[in-house]
């Protein structure tokens, strides 16, 4: 599905290549999904639309038996 060359530099025109610094030849590409796997919510007290949610650092209750908790 991704018909674009992975390398962004390869997509630049001849003029484009002349105009960008050397570091553009060594861009590090990664799937966009990796960068945006996040749970974000609104939070009223802080006027934030991207309030980051993640699991609490320790268990809150301990009701489940060992096996695959």
């Amino acid at each position: 599905m991704d018909k674009e060359p992975e390398d962004l530099f390869a997509r630049l025109s001849a003029e484009g290549r002349q105009l960008v610094p050397v570091s553009y030849r060594f861009l590090h590409a990664s799937p966009l999904a990796v960068a945006t796997v996040m749970r974000l919510v609104d939070s009223q007290p802080y006027r934030a639309t991207g309030y980051v949610c993640s699991a609490f650092h320790k268990p809150i209750s301990k009701c489940c038996s060992q096996d695959d908790v």
Binding site: V20, P21, V22, L32, A35
Partner: peptide, 29 residues
């Protein structure tokens, strides 16, 4: 670009990589 993100990171160049560059390029650090 589409489904990918392209980051500018600090990159390493050896003599071989340097020789592969055009004679002139945009001002680079």
């Amino acid at each position: 670009a589409g489904e990918r993100s392209h980051f500018i990171f600090t990159a390493s160049l050896d003599l071989e990589a340097i020789d592969a560059l055009p004679e002139r390029f945009a001002p680079s650090l």
